[in-house]
Design a protein around this nucleic acid. Structure first.
Length: 186
DNA sequence: TGCGAGATTACG
DNA sequence: GTAATCTCGCAA
């Protein structure tokens, strides 16, 4: 499920867009690393809702992180977006990420879960928005298959999720191998 | 009611 | 290396 998101496009209403190159899967009651491990709270309630919505949370008191909810209603499961390859609206992303543009490289725009949210303009207001609303006045963000072939399986890498202390035995981080925009080094 | 840990990042 | 300072679980 989670690796299927690799290669998909996250599209903002203002034209900003990035291709997903790195994700991590999180489960519910059976995944000790998941926010949903101990049941629903005010923060994680969207994780228990229907699939295709955005779960946004505030991390370390500093920045926002975004997940795609993947489980049916009542089942907590989500995929954390860890890195995007910026493909459109780069000027808006640069303006959102950097006050001083000097000595910055576009490669770093969406490299990391917090940076990607900053670059795309994802924040508190977007917790729970529907990513699959294709209507004329659809939501502020959409998850799109633009027809670009997904990365071949041979180019996919897996490994332990980053920044957690429990559940490391599950290799639930998925990424496009050797992509320059990955949040962690090889 | 308070404290420690956490799906992190920017800047010296 | 460290500060930034939110949310939650658990102890008191």
């Amino acid at each position: 499920m989670a690796p299927d998101l690799l290669g998909k496009l996250l599209l903002g209403a203002d034209g900003r867009a990035g291709r997903i190159v790195e994700v991590e899967a999180y489960g519910g009651r059976s995944d000790p690393a998941s926010h949903a491990y101990r049941g629903p709270t005010r923060r994680n309630r969207v994780m228990f809702g229907p699939a295709g919505h955005l779960y946004v949370y505030f991390s370390y008191g500093v920045h926002w992180c975004a997940n795609v909810v993947t489980g049916e209603a009542g089942v907590a499961a989500a995929v954390l977006l860890r890195a995007l390859d910026p493909v459109a609206g780069l000027d808006l992303m640069r303006a959102a990420r950097w006050t001083d543009q000097k000595r910055q490289v576009d490669r770093d725009l969406c490299r990391g879960p917090g940076r990607l949210c900053r670059a795309m303009g994802i924040g508190a207001a977007h917790d729970g928005v529907d990513l699959c609303d294709d209507g004329p006045s659809g939501g502020p963000f959409r998850l799109v298959d633009d027809g670009t072939p997904p990365p071949p399986r041979s180019d996919l890498g897996t490994g332990p999720r980053i920044g957690i202390s429990v559940g490391r035995e599950r290799l639930w981080r998925f990424y496009v191998r050797d992509h320059p925009g990955l949040s962690a080094r090889r």
